[in-house]
Structures are given as structure tokens and as C-alpha cells.
Design a protein around this nucleic acid. Structure first.
Lengths: 247, 247
DNA sequence: ACTTGCCTTCCATTGGACGGAAGGAACACC
DNA sequence: GGTGTTCCTTCCGTCCAATGGAAGGCAAGT
């Protein structure tokens, strides 16, 4: 077992998460399970390199160098850039919160998000992961995911709100309709007061590479219009993906 | 001298940049200045942790775990989110490429960018660093940077296009005007066919925390309108920064 | 069949990581 | 002002894990 020296440094970085963006040295050491003296030395090296930065308060945070290193990840390199203008058009046309997401294992990973000044209660943030069965983009991605993934997700449908779908049969039925109709919807299944519509984004070979979604307070009246807007956008993105170089 | 074990792993990560997003093991080793066997082992650890991922081709790329770790960096955590809606308004009002940037050492670091479908030749990408003396946002940030930084930048004004300002005296004069007038402009100093306007973004205490800029093909006619639009946006951002929690 | 360029594994050596302990600095409480 | 607490930093002898040369295995190219 005995952790290698490199993995210790990585464990220190792993101690940071969305709820712990700034940590003191001792907290950092505790969370990484390292002696204080060891953590101190490693943190010093990470800081010197720019992976960590130190606030005036003395707390450590993820540094700029890691930030821009992360931007080189192919998660988004092309997709995000290709989609950006279309997300913007979509926002302009709908004034709804716009989401671009991909599947990462059995979760939805949000790779871009575009919100207005005031917005519906939305949980997602760029870089956050949410369950697939309770979000619009999640249902789309799940509907087009390989069978083993679908099986695993269906096996563990956790309840988030009173409206979350937790019966496998019912979700399966919905997924079938998502494939048939080309879009997915949710109604307060992830967050009360928030409904969503989502459509798949297809790559050059027709495979689903991402999902594009809108979050609105109420879906009843506008569904048709929103789906139409989404489809315009998704077709635009696919065209760019097919033509351009997107890694 | 002798690099510590941690810093070797970091050097491997540092071998990636905007022009080298995917590297073979041997290239990686060469760029990091490490023996192949050593690089092989370290890369393996990084991959196991999720810092690196391997493509089918065998090449290594930055992994998803580093991507979302990077998103926790305070570079953008609040600023970017607070600014986002205003950037869209700005794009809507001007249809120009919109930039949000901060100063990182002696360079400009672009933390957000919003471009339309067609755009002027723009070099910047989110996460990229450009010289301060040849960009609009750079001039703004430089004008409000601490003296030692200004001195260092002025000492090395590299030429990018025929229009790049390389005389310290002339740049100093411009910086004075930037402070007095509250905005900076460039004319093809970074990229031929691209002009820019930029204004400072101020934090709660009035300090300059970022710069907001527009890139357009021609500046002559529209300058006044663009500056006005920028100022509306920058004031909105400052208001959000002052009120909300942005850290 | 030979060469060249990749990647992977092995293992004896040794130099640098390790972490307990002690020293400091800042704050709070009585 | 003494005493306790919680943080950060530095030191240094021990010892173990990182090191990297060497060798082997593919795959492509000539």
C-alpha cells in the first residue's frame, strides 16, 4: 500500500473539493491523511510550482497554473468552444439557464453553463457532477449510454425531491420516449421549482457526444418553442463539430 | 538543484501547453527532461489518479480530474460567475468578442471569453496568457499594476506586429491616459485587423481586480458607444462583487 | 532481416523523503 | 501576565522508496 511520494502530493490536491476551496495547512494535512511536517513540505513544493496559492489569510487554494492546465483537458477543448456561440444564441432566444453536459461514468458532468441575472434555483455548476436520472441532460445521455451504464444507474435511483423518478420501469419507459421523440424533460425532479428540457448533441458519426439543456420555472406552455430552439442549436453545433477540427 | 520527486511529476504536467495537448510518453519525458523509465512510472501514477488520461492512440492528455480541480481555483470562482451575465449583455449590445482578464505576474491571463459565430482574428483563448503591452485589457491592468511590475514589463516590450508599441516612453504616456480617461485602446498591436477597447473592473474597495475588453475590426466610428457599453457592464459587475460573496 | 522508434519491466544502488520533536507566532481566556 | 490553544515552520538522523541503466518486446518502416 504505502503511498508513493507522488500520490501523496496528489492526495493533497484531492483534499480540495467544491465545499472546500480554501484549506489551512493543518486541515489539508488531516484531510489527506499526512503528518503535518510532510504536508508542509509538499504543499511548499506545490505552491512554488503554482499548483497551489496562498491567500493573505494563510489558507491554501488551487493555483492558477492548475487552472489553465485543466483547460487543456480534452473534456471540453473543442466541444465547448464549438458550442459556445450557440449556447449564447440559445440564451438570447429563451432567457433560460443553458447547460452543456457530457456523461462521465454514471454521472452527468456539466461542462458549460450560461445563466442570466436572475434564475431558477439551479444546482449545477460548471465542473459539478449530478445524477443522471434526475436531470434533463442526464436523461438524454442515459438514453444513449451503453447498456452496462444504464443498468448500473437504474439499479440505484436515489430520491432527490418528492418528484424524482425512483422506479426503474418508469424511467426505462421515459428513456424509450427520449430516444423516439428526440428530447427529454424533467419536472422538479432535481430541484423544486425547476423544470428542464434537453436534447442530444451528435458528433460527426451521429453518436451522442453531449447533451444540451434548458432550465425554466415552468414547462407547460413553452415546451414546443424551447424544444425547437434547442434543436436549432444542437444542429448548429453538430455542423461545426463535423466540419472543424475538434480534437 | 536536483529536482525533488514531486516537482518531477509537476514538470511532467508542465510539459503540456496550448500547442501540446496530447503527448507520447517519450516526448513527455524529453520535454520534462526525465529519463524514460522515470517518466513512465510517474505518468502511470498520474494516470491512476486521474490527472492524466490516455487516448486510444497511446498519447497522454490532461485528465478530467485536473479539469474540475482547476475549476476550484479562485481565479474565476466568483469573478467569472459574477461577470458572466454581464458579458452576455455586452455581447448582445455590441456583437464584439468580449474578454475578461486578470493580471498574472507580468502577463494577461484570459479568464473568460465570449465570441460570436464569426469574429475578428483573435489570438486569445480562455486560459491563455498574452503580453500586457499589446492588448487592451493588458494596458488597463498594467496601468493599475504595482510599480515593480510596470517596470519589468516596460523593460521588455517585444514586438508582435508592426503596430506594437515598443518605446517605453510612449507606452507610459498611454498608461497615464488610461488612468485618466478610464479606458484603453489598441489598434492592431497584437493581431492585424483587430482593434480593442478595455476598461477596469473594480472590487469592493475600489481596487482593480480584472479588465473587461472588446475586440472589433475597426474602432474609429464606434469607440464612444463601446466604451459606454463597457462601463455599464463593469459597473454591474462591481455591484455584484460588492454585494455578493465572491471568493 | 535489419533498423529505428516506441513502450514496458526489472532490480541493485543510494540520495533524498520522512516525520517526530522542538521552536515560534498569534490569539483567547482567566 | 500567565497559561492554554491552535496554528505554522524548521531541523536532522534514519532508512526506505525513487531512481534510471539495461534489457526485452512490439510495430513500422526500409
Amino acid at each position: 500500500m504505502s503511498a508513493s511520494v507522488t500520490s501523496r502530493a496528489l492526495d493533497l490536491l484531492g483534499a480540495f473539493d467544491a465545499d472546500h476551496r480554501a484549506l489551512t495547512l493543518s486541515t489539508l494535512a488531516r484531510r489527506a491523511g499526512l503528518p503535518l511536517a510532510t504536508a508542509h513540505r509538499l504543499v511548499g513544493e506545490l505552491q512554488r510550482w503554482g499548483a497551489l496559492a496562498r491567500l493573505e489569510s494563510g489558507e491554501y487554494v488551487i493555483g492558477r497554473r492548475l487552472w489553465d492546465l485543466g483547460l487543456l483537458a480534452p473534456v471540453q477543448a473543442g466541444l465547448r468552444q464549438a458550442a459556445s456561440p450557440f449556447l449564447h444564441d440559445l440564451y438570447g432566444a429563451t432567457l433560460a439557464t443553458v447547460h452543456l453536459a457530457v456523461r462521465d461514468g454514471c454521472e452527468v458532468l456539466y461542462i458549460d453553463r450560461l445563466a442570466g441575472h436572475v434564475s431558477v434555483p439551479v444546482v449545477s455548476k460548471v465542473g459539478s457532477r449530478l445524477p443522471m436520472h434526475a436531470t434533463g441532460v442526464g436523461k438524454v445521455l442515459l438514453a444513449h449510454a451503453p447498456e452496462p451504464v444504464r443498468a448500473e444507474v437504474l439499479g440505484k435511483l436515489t430520491r432527490v425531491t418528492p418528484y424524482t423518478i425512483t422506479q426503474p420501469a418508469r424511467l426505462l419507459d421515459q428513456l424509450r420516449r427520449v430516444r423516439a421523440e428526440g428530447f427529454a424533460t424533467t419536472g422538479e425532479e432535481m430541484s423544486l421549482g425547476a423544470c428542464s428540457v434537453a436534447v442530444p448533441v451528435r458528433g460527426p458519426a451521429g453518436e451522442v457526444v453531449a447533451a444540451l439543456g434548458l432550465v425554466v420555472p415552468d414547462l407547460r406552455r413553452e415546451r414546443a418553442r424551447l424544444v425547437a430552439a434547442l434543436q436549432v442549436a444542437t444542429q448548429g453545433i453538430s455542423r461545426v463539430l463535423a466540419s472543424g477540427q475538434w480534437n
